[in-house]
Amino acid sequence: MTRRFILGTVAHRLAILVYIIFALFPLYWLLKVSVTPNDLLYSEGVRMWPSRAGLEHYIFVLEHSDFPKFFKNSVIVSASTAFIVTILASLAGYALSRFTFRGKYWIVVLMLLTQMFPLVMLVAPIFKMLSPLGLTNSLGGLILVYVAFNVPFATFLMQSFFDGIPKDLEEAAMIDGATRFRAFRQIILPLTLPGIAATLGFVFTAAWSELLFALMLISGADASTFPVGLLSFVSKFSVDFGQMMAAGVMALIPACLFFLLIQRYLVQGLTAGAVKG
């Protein structure tokens, strides 16, 4: 019995180790190449760590490329999107959580529908609609599109957080003399802060990762987001792997930070937007 138990435990830990290696190795490789000097990159082949490491690719990317600008654009787009979506989703999620009203069913259907059809369908029509408005090649246009794309999922997420707060609390506040909106702001929202943080994190990550619409809507370097910039970098200088990977590591940093922020809420987030990545 004990021998079987020990064997089982060893197998369990080994299996977990395999998963960890599989999950982390590509990221490790990214990091490794990004610190490998160019002259060693090809000569040392598949060595696990270069004989000499340096930050020269990072310095080059930061000083002689457009990446700081792309990074700034991406931060502006992702942060604005996250901020606006969270406000809209809080309001709509509250309505879905607390009211029974005739239009509720249709609002839910509408939001579910947007999660069902392939967004790539919208690439062409959205470009056509935004271009006469001067919203192509602009961060504003990108924010508008990202907000709309993320609102349904964020609404369901916020709804699940509101559902976790007893109705009694705002009823008590309303009896204490608050309007419903004041009760929402002063009693319910402060209690939903963790949920709001999670929603911000989810939406930021989603906006930070979006590629196809950014490619379609943005053409100049001035309004490029990080993914667009990195891809055009790849096609332009496809030999400079060190620099690309240094840029890649930089793109990874905000995503990882937000991952730490929302880690606790992963389950809720994934079930709220079961169809979303």
């Binding site: 809209l88 989703a89 309001l91 709509a92 509250y94 309505a95 879905l96 607390r98 009211f99 009203f101 239009g103 509720k104 609002i107 509408l110 939001m111 947007t114 059809f117 369908m121 919208l122 062409a124 029509p125 959205i126 056509k128 609609m129 508008l144 599109v145 907000v147 709309a148 794309f149 609102v151 349904p152 609404t155």
Partner: peptide, 23 residues
């Protein structure tokens, strides 16, 4: 409840449903 959900719904209709129809 309609006031609470209006901004989200309007945006979804304008930026997702309308392009879908256009498509």
């Amino acid at each position: 409840p309609y006031l609470y959900s209006a901004p989200a719904v309007i945006l979804i209709v304008a930026v997702m449903l309308a392009p879908l129809a256009l498509g």
